[in-house]
Design a protein around this nucleic acid. Structure first.
Length: 587
RNA sequence: GCGCCCGUAGCUCAGUUGGAUAGAGCAUCAGCCUUCUAAGCUGAGGGUCGCAGGUUCAAUUCCUGCCGGGCGCGCCA
């Protein structure tokens, strides 16, 4: 599955071998099998392995071993870059490639540069990616932070494989929650002016409500006290919403998460879109009246029952807004809609996919990524939060404490659908225990190396001008092979909507880099006036842990290693960029 | 009660859509700095992949039933 320049060619070679075997009458099955290659679990099993023989054997009803043998023979005869093929039971093909074939990876990275990892998996398909979409009733909390980091990374990953992505924030500025906000703010406003009032039940308790109320008081003085209640509340709502939305935008800005468009729910009301959309559905009998209310016939699709869209009191439900909003998205001509939601909304997915069907699309037109909860830890202890009392840790607090890079990386270290434990102390640690520092340090370490090289007048030539064949160490090949699988990894992230795979990939790549870097020298030892002989004792020291090779590499080897490391640095940077994390030159 | 998600090393979690002797990071233990960043490296111990069946050459992965944890089943959002 790791598609890259090497993997692609090997996959094609296997497919050719299968076709050739058919021509010779050795194989018969009509449907061509999917020829996949993967890195074997053990290095002694070769460079790449494939299980195609087993799949074919099934179709042909023949022993896997037999099929594997004939494909192995075919590959060894006709494929120029395959050095050797071993067949391992029950029918694996273990391929060893010509060493120099791997160097094509380095040329590839150099020529692609910051687009290495990008592809044209889907060409120009349009995606609307909706995430965060918080109520403007308070600051973003860490749960929003996870959604924000995920959405931002997902947008980057999808763009990398060819999607045209629009990132949208749906502003939930209508409905009961906003009325509650208005009532809370108005109560604080009255308090500020000395009136003793009872605070609304279920009102927003947070201290920020007082701040907002004070700002309003400073702006309009006592004016609101003289207005009819409904008018005063309306004004509180508008002003509070504006201020809190602005704060949300600022929080996202300092977190480094961007949007292309902001879509207010209130627009759906004022423009009459909701009424029109429901009317359309009513004509198709997908919306109907019962018990003095309007219902969406979602049971027609995969929902367990029908749902109210317009209440007996005449107010629309949130579902009505969402139907209109998603109809609008569809009208904007996107090929795919993707929403990132908190996992507690999972029951809502079937009815929204029903909305897709109601408008004549497949339910898969809408994909929903569910994000699980975040628990904050401080030194291994859980930080208790109570939303009810308005005590929750905000995204801003976390970003201020650990930095945007660490916060994003930590949010992206787990599968979306799995609970996340976020250890604040760990995220701040400046050591190898902290994954984000470990990866960023790998990048900075290389940057530093290139600076030293430059100061000594050592140039890094284009890959084409270096003699790469002097790269023979296992640590060097581990790096090259890992680099080769990057494009396939990005594709996998896009297909599965799982950017977290990148964090694992980068930790592995950084690990290979640090291991190489510790064991092998790149630049010649400074003390030696002349370039000493190649004394690479790496292999000989293998049995003594932690002993560095006292090598002083030849000019040729220095050059080749610098070329290799240049590409490692590029891939680390590209990977971090896809996560929205910076790749520092210095730490 | 019904539905969805999760259950993998002491802890937190990966496992590329069914492949080989199940991995990583913490934590524990034992080592490594005259050197290009030790913000780093090497090694060791640690497993009934929740349990029981089924599907097949092959199951952590797919199916069924249990057990345990989380969430959802509003004319709330």
């Amino acid at each position: 599955m790791p598609e890259g320049i090497v993997q692609e060619q090997v996959t094609a070679a296997i497919a050719d071998a299968v076709a050739e075997a058919k021509r010779k009458g050795l194989l018969h099955s009509s449907s061509p099998p999917v020829c996949t290659v993967e890195f074997p679990k053990r290095e002694e099993w070769g460079d790449l392995s494939s299980s195609v023989a087993m799949t074919i054997a099934k179709m042909e009803k023949r022993p896997p071993r037999e099929v594997a043998d004939l494909l192995a023979k075919q590959l060894e005869e006709s494929c120029p870059f395959v050095d050797q093929v071993e067949v391992a039971p029950p029918g694996f093909l273990n391929l060893t490639l010509r060493r120099d074939f791997w160097f094509s990876v380095l040329h590839e990275i150099e020529s692609k540069g910051e687009t290495y990892g990008h592809s044209e998996l889907v060409r120009g398909k349009r995606v609307l990616l909706e995430y965060v979409s918080a109520n403007p009733t308070g600051p973003l909390h860490i749960g929003h932070g996870r959604g924000a980091a995920l959405g931002d990374a997902m947008a980057r990953v999808l763009r990398a494989v060819g999607y045209s992505v629009e990132r949208e924030f749906y502003i939930n500025d209508a409905g009961r929650q906003m009325n509650l906000l208005a009532a809370s703010v108005y109560a604080r406003y009255q308090e500020y002016h000395g009136s003793a009032v009872s605070f609304p039940e279920d009102g927003y308790q947070g201290a920020y409500i007082r701040t907002v109320a004070e700002h309003i008081a400073h702006t309009v003085g006592t004016q609101l006290l003289d207005l009819p209640l409904s008018e005063a509340l309306e004004q509180c709502k508008v002003m509070a919403c504006e201020e809190l939305l602005e704060a949300i935008k600022q929080d996202l800005l300092s977190f480094g998460v961007g949007f292309d468009s902001w879509y207010p729910e209130t627009r759906l009301f004022s423009s009459g879109t909701i009424r029109e959309t429901l009317e359309t559905l009513k004509q198709r009998d997908l919306v109907f009246e019962k018990d003095g209310a309007l219902w969406f016939r979602s049971s027609r699709f995969q929902d367990e029952k029908d749902r109210v869209v317009c209440k007996q009191d005449g107010d629309y439900t949130y579902l009505a807004s969402d139907i209109a909003y998603h109809h609008d998205k569809l009208k904007r001509d996107f090929d795919q809609l993707i929403n990132i939601w908190g996992a507690d909304h999972h029951g809502y997915v079937p009815r929204m996919q029903g909305v897709m069907q109601a408008f004549g699309y497949s339910k898969d037109r809408l994909q929903v990524v569910l994000v699980q909860m975040v628990s904050l830890l401080r030194g291994g202890r859980k930080v208790e939060m109570s939303k009810r009392a308005g005590e929750f840790v905000t995204l801003r607090e976390v970003v201020d404490e650990v930095g945007a890079d660490a916060a994003k990386f930590f949010f992206l270290m787990r599968r979306p659908d799995s609970h996340l434990e976020f250890d604040l102390e760990l995220a701040k640690k400046q050591s190898a225990e902290n994954p984000v520092y470990y990866v960023q340090y790998a990048h900075a370490r290389l940057a530093s190396l290139f600076r030293v090289a430059q100061n000594r007048g050592i140039l890094v030539p284009p890959a084409g001008d270096a003699n790469l064949t002097v790269l023979v160490q296992p640590e060097e090949f581990r790096l090259i092979k890992h680099l080769s699988s990057f494009p396939g990894l990005v594709e996998g992230c896009a297909r599965a909507l799982e950017p977290h795979r990148l964090t694992f990939y980068l930790q592995e790549l950084a690990g290979h880099l640090h291991a190489f870097y510790y064991k092998h020298r790149v630049l010649p030892s400074r003390e030696e006036g002349t370039t000493g002989p190649e004394l690479d004792l790496g292999g000989m020291n293998a049995d003594r842990g932690g002993v560095r090779a006292q090598e002083s590499p030849s000019h040729e080897l220095t050059t080749a290693r610098l070329v290799l490391l240049r590409q490692v640095q590029t891939v680390i940077r590209n990977g971090l960029t896809l996560l929205g994390v910076t790749a520092p030159e210095q730490m």
